[in-house]
Amino acid sequence: MTILFAVFLLSLLVIIAVAIIRAENLFVALMLTTIFSLLMATNFFILDAADVALTEAAIGAGITTVIFLGALALTSEHEKPFVAVPWLALPVVAVTAALLIFASFDNPRLGDPEAPIHQHVVPWYLEQTPKLVDIPNVVTAILGSFRAFDTLGEVFVIFAACIGVLFLLSARKPSETRCTAPASVGLSQHLIPKVAGRFILPFIILFGFYVQFHGDFGPGGGFQAGAIVATGLILFALLEGEERALRAFPRWIMMAMAAGGALLYALVGVAGIAMGGKFLDYSVLSSDPIAGQHLGILLIEAGVGITVCGSLLLIFHAFAARESF
């Protein structure tokens, strides 16, 4: 039954994907992308990947729409017509697709216990997590402890992407600085969103912290929590306008968050060296190795969450600032 639902949703996904490519109005493409994201999260959930589904939900539900709208405000709503026909691309894509389809025949059946993915390191992780790390969510143990080095890389990728976006958007010609649009007031004239938003806002932040600290026990963790808290703060900016949001939560705090989270993560690794272990080996952080692991995962998840939250907010405000000059 579940497989039937998954196949059904996947076919919807294909239809939406084709429609996104064919849409010429970028606003329409954005709306279809949102549906795509919702479908994707549902599919992940059906296939039992709750952590990934939560990530897709946290990012796709609010942030992507908001940031894409910020980008859309800077360009026109219609796609430029494509004049040249890319003849070279057609055989390249066709050959690649044929190769991929051919390769997919060798894939193991869905859920096959004999599949290589279940034979390689996964049994070791499942067996050792209760002994070495002792937290119920194995995904968090793998991401935070066993493969902490990869996650460190991901955090720095996010940080680098944020810096890249800031560089691109803060470049402006001096002659373009005249003000054409009135200062953003947000939704302060709309009573219903204001009341409902103010009520919901603290719950979003609270839920973000829940996801952050519940990551050891269920789906969740720093990345999802950072995105959810950032969504809450973006909601505040939408409701009250840019100016008030930046006064309440100034840019330098976001920059300190984006850099400080990544720094915290790296420092936890260095602390492991300083206390006689290896880089990102948390067992030496405390006299009891398992308590050390718990402390290490708590700290690095906090680092991930802070960096993600700061980066997303910086990107949002960069778009908004670009819009209003």
Binding site: T34, A53, G62, L69, I200
Partner: peptide
């Protein structure tokens, strides 16, 4: 939790459209 996430933050995108 997943459904709760959507219930909480799904309307932010629509507000952004407004």
């Amino acid at each position: 939790d997943l459904a709760l996430t959507y219930a909480l933050i799904n309307f932010v995108g629509v507000l952004a459209i407004l």
